[in-house]
Amino acid sequence: MAFYDRAFDALGLREWCDGGATGGPMTMAELLARSRGEAAGDAPFSLPFPSLDNLHDACGAIPRTRDFTAAIEDGFLAAKDAIKVVLDPLTQPLSWALDGALELFTWIPWWILIPLLVLATWGASKSRGVTLFVALSFLFLGFVDHLDVAIQTLAIIFVCTTLCVLLGVPVGIAMSKRRGLRGSLTPVLDLLQTLPTFVYLIPLIFLFSVTESKLYGIAIILYAIVPVIRLTDLGIRLVDPAVTEAADAFGMTPGQKLWKVELPLALPNIMAGINQTIMMSLAMVVIASLVSAPGLGVLVLRGIRNLELGVGLLAGVGIVLLAVMLDRASKAALERVDRSEGNA
């Protein structure tokens, strides 16, 4: 450190350095060095990287990195109350929806729920293969006592996907109409999609208590809403301009154009977006078990934590089954839309 000591002396900053010394508790590195009976960094020609910590050693007025992270945390905590005042009431319905759905889905007896889900699959996909696969998968999950957790996962996906569609489609429409909005939203969507899923959880954990369902609900929605927004925007912009021109030429209002022309023609793309949104919700709901989201993810987590290989693997198989069910059913629905639009 001698180098930086001399540097600050040469610059005539010694007084400022000592005057503003922050002191504070020692870092772990300093403690270790002291316990080994060494003075930190005494090698004659050592030139350590001019990091905050190293500069702090030479000049007490410069904060250490730990002071810096502490400041971020303090800032966040200070802002937290203000943010919560706005966010809490806005997001409270999400907690209710999640808790309500979880309660409802687990309350319905299996001999009603499984037939209902199989029927819903048939209604959406009109595909015998997919329906049969869904029925067998649920029977298997029930047989190995994983039906309740799988249903919890499904309930969360159901609520989050519904909200993604309700929020994402209007945002996508607005984006397709306004070049400026698209320009400013695109980097946000890029960020949401590239952030590793764990990183979402960090600010949310500070904002909300881990006991609140909305914590994982928000994480899932933020992560999974991106494709439905993007593909709604894209789908509407890809509508044949000749057809929208015809709509204008025959005097459609913007609303008529949206409902009678643009949305129907963008529907295959929007459905593809919903399919991706469902799959991303599933991926996130597993990770969200870290912040107390119930469902199959909890068992995977147990497998990892306790090295219970069998528990983890069986839950993994359950997740794969859910993934395939959701994917096949939504893709079959998409194909049906494509066909009925005469694009097939």
């Binding site: 025959f250 005097g251 639009e341």
Partner: peptide, 29 residues
């Protein structure tokens, strides 16, 4: 909008029909 609805109709090179509607629905548009 009223003029486009009541005074003018248009026929396009690439037909510009609505692919998700039947022929009669298109003609009735």
């Amino acid at each position: 909008r009223r003029m486009r609805r009541e005074r003018m109709s248009m026929v396009f090179q690439k037909f510009a029909l609505l692919p998700h509607r039947t022929v009669v629905q298109n003609a009735a548009m």
